[in-house]
Amino acid sequence: MQVFIAQILNGLSIGSVYVLLVTGFNLLLLVAMIIHFSYPQVVVFSMYIIWLVLKMTNNNLLLGILAGVSSAVLFNFISAPLFQKIMKNREEVDINATMVLSMAIGWIITDVLSHAFNNGLPIQFPEEITGSRPLFRIGLISILPGQVWALSIGIIVVSGFFILLYKTKAGRAFRAIAEDPAGARLVGIPLVKTGFQSYALSGVLGGLTAVLLAMLFHSASPGLGEQVSHKVLAVSIVAGLGNLTGGLVVGLALGILEALVQGYISGNWSNAIAFVVMLIVIMVKPKGLFGMKV
């Protein structure tokens, strides 16, 4: 029972990272109309920026977090014109071309991280951000402060996102474009401007996810982005491409599934088992558990 509770908590905290990543990915898909499956690479890039700033400022947490969030926003803004350019040249949205661009961005980041930071060795985050001593330990359960932080930040950010989506002017425009881009344009929603708002918002989500990842994983390597991006793409497809609520449920479910496998079977098998389960789901429901939104 103690293992179970511990692993559920672990699963929820890593699941909240998946939820944030899938939400950012889906937002870009729905509003900016791009398939940016290298989005997790951008997030890992922000993790490196956080690490660098922590090192330079003698572990000033606030500055590290600010740098992480702003680097992700900045990175999204730099890549946005590239995406817009290939779509405008085709007159209509061509989502396939955006995948090649996303792939290129992903590989450039991976290569830069392997050569320009820490000689390509994995980076270690300081105890200031991860927390060193467990908050408490009962039998087998030990909870690190980083986990508690990650889970609470995850809950706050995800609920904030959904409030924004359903209660604000920008969120209303996001939903309208997601449902019918041509119709949204006819009622006077500016597509490019709203698209840029979605880049900014997914940047904020990505930067905060980088902070969460640093708290949970304590380290990062250049290949981390690629590993995570496979899972994020799989989660979004299993949930139903572009389905935000679906991504929320499936992201948390994947986190819990992985944690339970690690707790009861073996950590070495968690990826394979997770993907086998997702394979079965997608064979039974090819359009995803919750249905596609695009």
Partner: peptide, 28 residues
């Protein structure tokens, strides 16, 4: 200038109020 499109162009998954507010996007 505004257009009421052929086939209405109503956002089916959104509430009536949300649809109306979308029309007021520039005029909130």
């Amino acid at each position: 200038i505004c257009l009421v499109p052929e086939g209405r162009g109503v956002f089916a998954s959104m509430s009536v109020l949300d649809n109306l507010l979308l029309g007021a996007h520039h005029n909130l």
